[in-house]
Design a binder for these strands. Structure first.
Lengths: 314, 314
DNA sequence: TCACTGCCTGCTCATATGAGCAGGATTCCC
DNA sequence: GGGAATCCTGCTCATATGAGCAGGCAGTGA
């Protein structure tokens, strides 16, 4: 394509997209046949001179979803648009909304849904609509009796998802991380706790997020870990956590001793699940999102455009 | 349009614009008739959910051009896109290129073209192609013997435009602004100078820019005015200058005494010209662009998208 | 309750667009 | 300079899309 044609294709695009002229009219204006105009427009598109963007909080990026499915071996992917996003919170909201939409549309409707907890999961629970499912039983898949004043967030999340789905919630009555291994083993051998974990293992589907390995982690906020603990984990290669378990960029457990004190489903149990939906958005979670996807921790990913691009090209 | 339809219109837009599905296929996917899909797409467009942008340095904004013509009573307007512009320089370049393109396409080709001088005009002169016209005589319309080391810019501009247009240049051998009125009158009564001004008055078309009233002005750089002089002008309401004459936001001369010492065509002579092409771009020139257009100093405006929006909505 | 108003739907028909093809121009390589 | 390969053009034909219309439906006020 020489410079003349390039310029003509721009003029044609202006008339076609901004002035709503037909290709025939453009042909008359620019003294070209309508076929030439059609070809110029096709070239302008193909060369990337024309950008079509869908500006809406609920807009998705289907081409990225397809690439994620194909190139990262996911059974499904949902990518929300970042166009017009003003804050990290807005991005979280959009992604949570998309996750809620995905759950609502999910067929067959899961009878038992295992969930983790955290800011993302809470947001999703708030955005689900009443009647999003009929008779879904929700079970917590990792410990989460909150230690701080925001007590009950973990429970509220599970209960809210269950109630809106016309079912009931089974809570895991245990802290996320115990200080001593013996305590953790004692708790896990408790009949109630063991029963909940057993139920969690039998869930049809799992819904969880991932946390970045930084000082804003819910584990720090909830008091399970100190900022110093996190620093040590990062030094050992941690990029973030999934259901309370810290992993490195290959998806391996960073600190087996800490992991042994963490209550809930193991990562391998997640990996072998038929349907594991991860919801991960935001720049700070790019490394952990990469680890989750690469190590096969999820079969479905709900994320944002920037994170998707990071996973594919970064 | 209720929320369901809004969401459907977004889904339809994704499939239509990002996945290149036909409206019929989308209808099958979303369980709608193809007519409904067409209507949803039309609504998505109309509601502004779909943005189509032409990304190219030579791209123009025809809807803005039309609005300028209609709402600001211009006989023609050229608006270059600001999409992807990284610096003020790039904006200047794009606008200068558009002005050069406009001149090249101008019919009938002017026999005598009056030009001012300055950074914008110089840029245009550099971007004109050899043979842009055949036999154009170029005449300077305001004084501009440069006082500083960048001597000859004014002359080079006119000569370059003329040479590339296969004609010759007539320079106005006078400073832009004289220190004393008597000197100015003496210069204007000089036979050569008077002849040039007479020729300038007879030009078929004028091409000029406008300067902002700030310390970066070419008049300051060329030594005709001090920064203090400019400050005084601003205090008196000056928003910028056209052919060396400082005007307020209504297009009136700010300082008649200074104006009387300025050599060249008067503003009223420009206003009554059959074809007066102003080339004005950049944020700093918004106020002066507004004054130029509102007071009818130009019949054709070449500018950038942001300036055009300022003129129309600001 | 019922007639009315106005919107929405699914259609017909006209138009706009894209796929594919054959001939002619251009370039490239010897 | 000649021949081949390639590209480009303008066409035919099939398809996709938009305009406009008649019937049906819901909401409204007497």
């Amino acid at each position: 394509m020489d410079e003349t044609d390039e310029l003509l294709s721009i003029r044609a695009a202006e008339l076609y997209y901004e002035e709503n002229k037909t290709q025939d009219e453009i042909g008359q204006a620019l003294r070209l046949t309508r076929w030439k105009v059609g070809r110029l427009l096709a070239q302008a598109k193909q060369r990337g001179f024309i950008r079509i963007e869908i500006l809406h909080p609920r807009a998705r990026r289907l081409p990225l979803e397809r690439r994620l499915r194909d190139e990262r071996r996911l059974s499904d992917a949902i990518v929300v648009s970042t166009a017009g996003v003003r804050s990290a919170e807005e991005l979280q909201e959009r992604t949570a909304q998309a996750a809620a939409d995905y759950l609502t549309a999910l067929r067959p409707v899961p009878r038992t849904l295992g969930v983790s907890w955290g800011r993302t999961l809470f947001e999703i629970s708030q955005r689900l609509r009443n009647g999003w499912a009929t008779g879904v039983n929700v079970v917590q898949i990792n410990g989460g009796v909150s230690l701080n004043r925001r007590a009950g967030t973990a429970a509220a999340t599970a209960v809210s998802i269950a109630q809106k789905g016309g079912g009931s919630a089974t809570l895991l009555p245990s802290p996320a991380i115990l200080e001593r291994l013996a305590t953790k083993e004692a708790i896990e051998s408790d009949r109630v706790v063991a029963g909940v974990i057993e139920l969690a293992r039998s869930a049809d589907a799992y819904l969880f997020s991932a946390g970045a390995a930084d000082h804003n982690s819910v584990h720090v906020e909830s008091g399970y870990l100190s900022t110093a603990d996190v620093d040590v984990l990062v030094q050992k290669g941690a990029v973030g956590d999934v259901v309370g378990r810290y992993i490195d960029s290959d998806g391996n457990i960073v600190d087996p001793a800490l992991d042994a004190r963490t209550v809930g489903l193991t990562l391998d149990e997640l990996r072998s699940a038929p349907l594991a939906i991860a919801v991960i958005a935001g720049t700070s979670k790019h490394p952990v999102a990469d680890a989750v996807v690469r190590s096969g921790l999820c079969s479905v990913l709900v994320t944002d455009e920037a994170t998707a691009l990071h996973l594919l090209d970064g």
